[in-house]
Design a protein around this nucleic acid. Structure first.
Lengths: 347, 347
DNA sequence: TTGTAGGCGTTATCAG
DNA sequence: CTGATAACGCCTACAA
């Protein structure tokens, strides 16, 4: 398992009758090296196919070119797209992405943070595990000099770097869209209230209702742990039994919204005429379900890219940067599930 | 950016009045160390929160604990699930997964292989870029002592380690299923014929037809570059114009199959009565489209897991292992898009 | 059973 | 402008 063509700066030095340090300096564009020597050295390095041994560099600098990425599960459309964006951005900066999944369990989150720390990642990008409530392990990391940046699922009340979407505004937009379609009894499927993200979407929802002079009815606000398709269906079943059932649903994700559509259809409820529905994320399924599902667009790939750019900024700055939050915009994509006939021209 | 609690074996050695090598040996379970000393050392290491510096270890061994994973795009359901499986398996072995995307471009594939090689990954798991035809860069890597294992999209005619599904059999199964439903004019959506994977699925399709005494009609076999939903729709449109249009389609992926369903429905073609359809991959969309799409199940997560286990086996073996191919089984999952009324009891 | 010393490949510091 | 030299933290002959 030995690398064969292991050309080192020592080999180059011997061949050119200079010292290894000269080679090192030339290759690192140190200005104190003579123009000509530098050029000759680079030339030879290219010829010999010299590749700096990144492990040696890391050992010397006590820092790798790896960024750890910790997520709940990576095989979800939104997450994998986010990571895809990170990978691109990181690679263009000469960094690698090192992935860990917590499977939304605190134990795994702890272990993974630990494992990544051991691998000496230069920085860590985290989308919190569902049940995470204790953030001490991240604080330790930060205290240890490893910058941590949170993305999408952020911790509550912690002064840290964040890249998020404006969940309040998105919730407002979604609800506002339903109101614009003439809906007045709008229900909301929310997720675990432990998460800032769902709290915010809900706040946006309530704010839009209040602004429009509509009542905020507690019985119309349902929380589901996983917001699965099944949960979406059963929540819809529950709502439809009301003497005065809702005429619209704003679901905090697409999966539960699809569940709502399928259930409503199976009960002969017409969508969007009797029940307008909007989801969240713009997952691929939105364009497949019938009627097509309106949703809120997340710039997932871009979020990942921006997170890495921000991380690079932090890494390249010697002094400690104050915690900064980058907020990305969302928008409504209106489709058949919420566009009522007499409003369709309006879009 | 300095790690603070950097406890080293040297620190422990000083504290215990032994030499660093003793510490190292004890922590590595070297049997030549006295039971008691070893125990005491491990105890102290735990107390002081000692963490071996993995970079130093890597430099010494000229090998990291990272496995490179190179795929086309990671934000596709099948791929991200595969990587999820790899991540789990690798982590349980103390390895990290380092991701690179080729975006199905040869240039990126080359660059990424290069970048991963520079980061001194211990091994590389590759799912080929669409257009990859030249495999020299992988051969170089292998010659350089870095084991390479191909998964799913494998190179043609190269003696290498592989983890794949039996695409021939899967193609046979899918077609056989349609034949069992009473279909006799079965069309096939295939992908780029440069890929072994699509060649095999097609061979399986043809084999099932021949076995059943049905003709293999060239005009029923269509190839699409990306097998997108649009391509699926337009290929269906094309097929439906035949004087004797097909009564079934076996699509080499779900996306194009969904395109077929949507187009056929829009033309008033009844599914599955007039046109039975089966896809490939069992992507989430299968259960959302109406009628629900029959498909071929891939054990994606397990494939990833097995690939890593195989890689570990290779890494832990000192001599060079002969190239081995692991073939995983697939099965048909029959849903409404292909289950004809009079056959439904059969399943 | 334990200690000593050298080296993995690079870079930073200090002389020249 | 360039050359020695000493780390970075760990492992492993070889010696004791």
């Amino acid at each position: 398992m030995k690398r064969k063509n292991a050309v080192t700066i020592f080999d180059l030095a011997k061949e050119m009758n200079v010292s290894p340090s000269t080679i090192s300096r030339a290759l690192n564009n140190n200005p104190t090296i003579g123009k000509n020597t530098a050029k000759a050295i680079k030339q030879l390095a290219r010829e010999r196919g010299y590749q700096p041994n990144s492990i040696a560099v890391s050992l010397r600098k006590q820092q790798t070119n790896n960024i750890g990425v910790l997520v709940g599960r990576m095989n979800r459309p939104f997450i994998s797209s986010m990571i895809a964006g990170m990978e691109e951005a990181a690679r263009s900066e000469g960094f690698n992405i090192l992935i860990a999944q917590s499977h939304d369990k605190l134990v795994n989150e702890l272990n993974s943070v630990h494992a990544l720390q051991k691998s000496l990642v230069s920085g860590l990008v985290v989308s919190l595990a569902m049940e995470s409530v204790d953030y001490q392990h991240f604080v330790d990391l930060i205290d240890d000099g490893i910058p941590v940046l949170f993305i999408d699922r952020i911790p509550a009340g912690l002064e840290v770097h964040k890249v998020i979407i404006d969940n309040f505004k998105a919730g407002y937009q979604a609800t506002r869209h339903l109101i614009d379609q003439g809906c007045t009894r709008i229900a909301h499927f929310s997720g675990s209230q432990k998460h800032v993200l769902y709290q915010e979407r809900r706040r946006g929802y309530e704010s839009a209702l209040v602004e429009a002079g509509l009542p905020v009815r507690e019985e119309y606000i349902l929380s589901a742990s996983a917001l699965s398709q099944e949960e979406g269906a059963s929540m819809t079943e529950y709502l439809l039994q009301f003497p005065e059932p809702p005429d619209a649903i704003f679901a905090a994700n697409d999966t539960s919204a699809v569940g709502a559509i399928l259930h409503a259809k199976s009960k002969g409820v017409r969508i969007p005429e009797e029940l307008a529905i909007i989801g969240f994320n713009d997952d691929p399924q939105c364009q497949i379900v019938e009627p097509q599902l309106s949703s809120i667009i997340h710039p997932a790939v871009e979020m990942g890219r921006i997170a890495i750019e921000q991380m690079m900024h932090i890494l390249h700055t010697t002094e400690t940067l104050p915690a900064q939050t980058i907020v990305l915009d969302t928008s409504v994509i209106a489709r058949a599930s919420s566009l009522r006939e007499h409003k369709k021209s309006v879009n």
